[in-house]
Computed example of a mutant assay.
Amino acid sequence: MKNPQDPAARPYRIGSCPQCGQSVRLDESNPWRPFCSERCKLLDLGDWFAGRYGIPSDDPTPHHRDPDGD
């Protein structure tokens, strides 16, 4: 009988890598989930740093600090 605590014994979900679209396991056996690899994870992080992604806001005015304190 299989141990239910063993990750290999439990059912798993399959998803698509958000970066390349390849099928990936979405469980503990995939250290980069939801990505397929470390490469895709780092490419996605680079897209965030480059400003290609953003979180929408309802605030119409950007909040910038005034270096002069005005």
Rank of each mutant, 00 (worst) to 15 (best):
M1P: 06
K2C: 06
N3E: 06
P4T: 15
P4Q: 07
Q5G: 14
D6A: 08
D6I: 06
A9D: 03
R10L: 15
P11T: 14
P11Y: 13
P11F: 08
Y12W: 07
Y12S: 00
R13K: 11
S16L: 13
S16V: 11
C17E: 10
C17W: 00
P18T: 07
P18H: 07
P18V: 14
Q19F: 03
Q19C: 11
Q19K: 11
Q19V: 04
G21T: 07
Q22L: 02
Q22K: 03
S23V: 03
V24C: 09
R25L: 04
R25N: 00
L26H: 12
L26F: 12
L26T: 07
D27A: 00
D27T: 05
D27K: 02
D27H: 07
E28Q: 02
E28N: 09
E28G: 05
S29Y: 10
N30R: 13
P31H: 03
P31W: 12
W32E: 05
F35E: 02
S37K: 05
S37E: 09
S37A: 14
R39I: 09
R39L: 10
R39S: 04
R39P: 02
C40Y: 01
L43Y: 15
L43V: 14
L43I: 09
L43C: 15
L43S: 11
D47Q: 06
W48H: 01
F49S: 13
F49I: 11
F49C: 10
A50K: 13
G51P: 01
R52Y: 06
R52T: 05
Y53K: 15
Y53L: 13
G54R: 08
G54V: 02
P56F: 00
S57K: 00
S57M: 10
S57R: 01
S57Y: 08
D58S: 05
D59T: 10
D59H: 04
D59F: 06
P60K: 07
P60W: 12
T61L: 12
T61A: 15
H63G: 05
D66K: 00
D66G: 03
P67K: 05
P67I: 08
D68L: 13
D68M: 06
G69M: 12
